[in-house]
Design a protein around this nucleic acid. Structure first.
Lengths: 143, 143
DNA sequence: TTCTCAATTTGTAATGATTACAAATTGATA
DNA sequence: TATCAATTTGTAATCATTACAAATTGAGAA
């Protein structure tokens, strides 16, 4: 729930709120699916027929540089993006390939081995079977 | 320190120990740098002039399928590999691009949000400045 | 030893995400 | 309205990875 417009939000992070940037940020913020460049481009193309995929790449790079989005390399193949900046983990299902968010305590301070290191970003990826796919598998095994 | 030969180790994991596979596993096991396919290929090519990069890809896929190696997607660009299977984290320095291992408690059980999920793999990536680069930066700032 | 056959390796070509780059467009300010 | 820098766009290049088919290898049979 944002109390300021997307334009003002971008401005407050030193990003000039062009039409494309506002639309891309809105899409990313409202999306729960951690979309790829391809997904963002395909979703906005009908509404912005002149949109270029390069613009999507450029814009996401700006968002990341300014600290309002994150790149998620949970896929080996293509990068996903997330407008949720607060610390949380990502779970990817091997079967349905969906990426789930999960709440997670920040245990950075516990890591003694990194004394003297300046930790600026954290990514926690778990992989396996989501509850849905896991349950279907168990049902099959019962038979 | 392995008490069995690499060949026997591979056999015990259902992998036929060809010359290439043994050499690639030895290199990966002895490497602390989480090498990419390119690094592995370049390192072994002098010793195995007929080696093909495709073989390196194929072999690493076999190792991962059989559970004796892991893919590390800490780089957006290319995949790195690790023969260390026990749970540990990876830290990548933004400046020198080196990837460090660090010991880490497994807090999987703490994650309530993943009830019903079957977690099969974990990756923890931290990014920032390593102690070496961080220290150099502080020295510059003092001047 | 020689033969056979499946597994493995190899080289080349294709794929596809990402980046480079230069031209076109936009929009704020004078 | 004119100017100019920032932004957007389209195309071409880059490069890690994969697909695929031919060549090679190696273990067991004859």
């Amino acid at each position: 729930m944002m109390t300021v417009s997307v334009g003002d939000f971008l401005k407050s992070h030193d990003i000039k709120p062009s039409y494309q940037r506002v639309k891309i940020y809105e899409f990313l913020k409202n999306s729960k699916e951690h979309p790829t460049v391809e997904v963002i481009y395909s979703a906005l193309n009908p509404e912005i027929p002149t949109l270029s995929k390069t613009t999507v790449y450029n814009t996401l790079k700006v968002f990341i540089d300014k600290g309002i989005a994150m790149a998620i390399t949970i896929d080996e193949r293509e990068v996903r993006f997330d407008a949720e900046i607060r610390m949380h983990g990502h779970f990817k299902c091997y079967k349905c390939h969906q990426v789930y968010d999960f709440e997670m305590a920040d245990q950075t301070a516990d890591v003694e081995a990194l004394d003297g290191f300046q930790i600026m970003e954290r990514q926690v990826f778990y992989y396996g079977l989501c509850d849905h796919c896991n349950q279907k598998l168990e049902e099959v095994e019962k038979q």
